[in-house]
Nucleic acid binder design. Structure first.
Lengths: 338, 338
DNA sequence: TTGAAAGCGCTACCAG
DNA sequence: CTGGTAGCGCTTTCAA
């Protein structure tokens, strides 16, 4: 592993000064086009690559963003896609993305060194978020912050859960449902999103003069837990539709319901508020919301860039577009339309 | 955002020199225990945090590792857990983890600045891996490398796919299966792991004088694709067990098979080679391999540390322990053991 | 046991 | 348009 080539190397090779090379490379147009090209060409030929540490030390910026995904939901593909959306766009903007885990610091004397932090689905009192915020760098959240933490965010990008939730419920009614139940995350994952989902459902029920049927469950329940939750829900009451908030649970509920004799898409309807690409968005019997998490992540990254560009003087709030992917109406056994 | 506190600040405050503070902080025991404690205490009180860039510039190391997950499989929870295993252990060892996406660089004049790269399930000719390797930093792979890339890795940690695959197949036989089929990843994800899985199955079949029944499928197939693949497999032949290689497919196949009248765990057996925590490892009817991906990631990180400590002079190869979680034998309707 | 000084690679400023 | 120089914060000699 030989010593890396630096700007002095290429300065010597071209018989120029450090400064000329530097400005030619960063391209702030103080040098003549001719020398600029010579420098760039030589840099490429010699395999020059900027030393980030040196640059950062000088410019006082790290060139990296921190990304934090709460431990509770790390198994969901939504967050993986969100993550790579952030990574992808960040790379395009010239930033690295550093991932933070749960512990993250105790051993570390050297705190995370980042220019900004992005947090997905911030939980009200997550200590990691507080620590991230305390570093003083801009904070962008995917999903709103609530409670004491809420003013910590410089940028928020969220899905309009209220609008989308209603679209799902209305769609179920359109398919023939009269009494949809909601399966929402339990207290272990009491994120603002979870709260929005509950509130939306309750408000919708009130509008429709419907007795709400709400069950709570872990975001990644065991088969047994899901099984008993579903059974409890359908035996307790006369519901004819089930809206599952956590990703994947609608897909996993389908076989349970079918084994109990329900015909999904006909006398019973299923919906997913966070459609899983493999199991729900591809499943025509399930009405699902496509939250396009990859694009969601990209937008979060773009928002971060915007805030950084402004010198962290602005606060941004945007909505990310989600899409309703309705279930295909089940072909009636008695005949067929079209 | 006030200026960060540096070692000079705390040197001034304590009326010491930069050097003394530095060595006290890094604790290489040249200063007296008394001053060392004074310095450490002051640092904590003043909220000192090491400037990574400065340290790196001096020491010529970035304090960060790169992690790359092939795009094809990013939706699998296995990789998410692996990722956070790496992040967790890296943090404990004092390293940041920078995530790499597919594009990663075109815009970047500034190549990734890392001390080492970790790659999960390296695909034979992945250009990102080549680029990572070309940076000259140590490379650790989760899963073996094959083909032209294979000598690029300084460290390899892998599951003994051969041993574990056989354990699964033998277990199915023990449960009563005679003719197990394999559902393996298609050419889109032709990783060494996928190859191992196929080879193991074929060798096992030969040993047992069984005609192999092999189907290939996308690692994240649509419901329709999975449905038709399963149907094709069982109608074409008289198989009585199905081993699914890609994560989650055994769980997703279960309802398909059941809807066709098969009783899983009795006359038909299902197995998952990469047990999904939510759908397969929790499902008592499915024989599943628990690859403990989080721990897998941690081990990869520890291996990286070991290689780095050696000055990248050693090459390491280890096996990561996976666990067979057999299906619970279905209670026979005619009676019960015990 | 401590201090002074050099220097990692880069950008920014000030002359020319 | 270009060169010289200072200095970002840190570690690491070399002297005291």
């Amino acid at each position: 592993m030989t010593r890396a080539v630096t700007i002095v190397d290429i300065a010597r090779a071209l018989d120029l000064s450090k400064s000329t090379v530097s400005s030619a490379l960063t391209g702030q147009g103080r040098s003549s086009e001719a020398t600029r090209r010579r420098v760039v060409e030589a840099a490429a030929r010699m395999g020059y690559v900027t030393n980030r540490a040196a640059r950062q030390l000088r410019v006082q910026s790290t060139g990296a963003w921190g990304l934090y995904i709460p431990a509770q939901v790390r198994m969901q593909s939504f967050y993986m896609q969100f993550t790579f959306g952030v990574v992808d766009e960040a790379a395009a903007l010239g930033y690295d993305v550093t991932l933070f885990g749960r512990t993250s610091e105790p051993t570390q004397k050297m705190g995370p060194q980042i220019d900004g932090a992005i947090v997905a689905d911030p939980l009200p009192d997550d200590p990691v978020i507080e620590r991230l915020a305390r570093t003083g760098v801009p904070l962008v959240t995917g999903g709103p912050m609530r409670g004491s933490n809420s003013r910590l965010a410089d940028g928020v990008i969220e899905v309009d859960n209220y609008k989308m939730g209603r679209q799902v419920l209305d769609q179920l009614v359109r398919l023939g449902a009269r009494l949809p139940a909601l399966m929402a995350p339990d207290a272990m994952f009491d994120s603002p999103w979870a709260g929005d989902v509950r509130d939306t459902y309750l408000a919708w029920c009130e509008d429709h003069r419907i007795e709400p049927k709400l069950a709570t469950i872990a975001v990644s329940p065991t088969s047994q837990d899901l099984d008993s939750a579903v059974r409890r829900l359908i035996t307790d009451s006369s519901i004819d539709a089930l809206v599952c908030a956590p990703q994947g649970l609608a897909g996993r509920s389908q076989p349970i319901l079918e084994s109990l004799g329900y015909k999904i898409g006909k006398e019973f309807h299923l919906a997913a508020l966070v459609g899983d690409p493999a199991t729900e968005l591809m499943n025509e019997k399930i009405t699902a919301l496509d939250l396009t998490p990859f694009e969601f992540g990209r937008e979060a990254a773009r928002m971060m860039e915007e805030i950084l560009q402004s010198g962290a003087t602005i606060r941004l709030h945007k909505f990310h577009e989600a899409h309703l992917r309705p279930a295909v109406a089940a072909a009636d056994t008695s005949g067929t339309t079209m």
